[in-house]
Design a protein around this nucleic acid. Structure first.
Lengths: 145, 145
DNA sequence: ATTTATACTCACCAAAAAGAGAGCGTAGAC
DNA sequence: GTCTACGCTCTCTTTTTGGTGAGTATAAAT
């Protein structure tokens, strides 16, 4: 997947610019806990997928998202979108028509998170084979001790 | 936490160098599935924490890891470490003494994954406040429609 | 009159993940 | 002789997660 390229160089550059701003060493355990918690909220499978899709296609309707992802249940989709909205990653726009029309789009924050995840996607793409090899050799080691 | 700084600039530079190698657009659905799967295996809470700790302190014993993390159960720690070993992120060294001594250390692969996650930690650090604010306003919107 | 589309919510159930606590084998300290 | 340390594993129970299928409101199309 060209996940690596769904975010423009500018996004990524922005993410790195932020990293330069970060104070050199701060180890407040409260901050640490918050950061962990935040990542826990934000770094799940569905969130990452939706981030990707919205970055790729811009504003998208509920049912379209549902169809594109294919394997997600309505329940999970709603739930994930609500969490994302709460965390400021997407904006939900309701058009008061009937049948209902609701669009979801990434915010700046959502976009920047997508850029941050980029590194992980790239890592996965580049290291698929290494991991695969490692698994094989692990299984062999386990087989004959 | 200065999570951002547990990985040296060289590691991060290496991660970006990889990104430059990535072919511009490749959307093989099989690769896509594999990448997703891999991220699913690798991007969980405990793995990320252990990656951090090992990057920070180098080779560490089981009980030390357990104590440092504090909130992890032995079961989860063992399980996570096994998965990481299988995926080639850590090496497990058994010293045949009694009482047992087992050390865990990051591999190159583990180190590079840590570097990739760096962007996400940095994002979380930098955007804690934005997320917090967004949550507050979301709750307010929910309260009075 | 019936069907269709949309974006949900709700109640229920099954499966998966995670925590708690006990046990184990053995060497050295007391 | 008993206790402790270490790195687990095993079983049992609880919690969390996620899927399923039904229901809702309403206007337009058939």
């Amino acid at each position: 997947m060209s996940t690596a390229h769904r975010f423009t160089p500018e996004h990524i550059a922005r993410a790195h610019a932020q990293s330069a701003q970060t104070p050199p060493a701060e180890t407040d355990p409260r901050v640490e806990a918050l950061v962990r918690d935040l990542i826990g909220c934000v770094a799940d499978k569905w969130t990452m997928l939706i981030l990707e899709l919205l970055a790729e296609q811009g504003a998208t309707r509920f049912t379209q998202l549902n169809r594109r992802i294919g394997t997600i249940s309505q329940k999970m989709l709603t739930q994930t979108l609500r969490h994302m909205e709460r965390n400021g990653l997407v904006i939900r726009t309701v058009h008061p028509v009937v049948p209902p029309k609701v669009e979801y789009a990434l915010t700046e924050l959502g976009l920047s998170l997508g850029a941050a995840f980029c590194g992980v996607w790239i890592w996965a793409e580049n290291n698929l084979d290494a991991v695969e090899a490692s698994r094989k050799s692990f299984e062999n080691r386990a087989a004959e001790p």
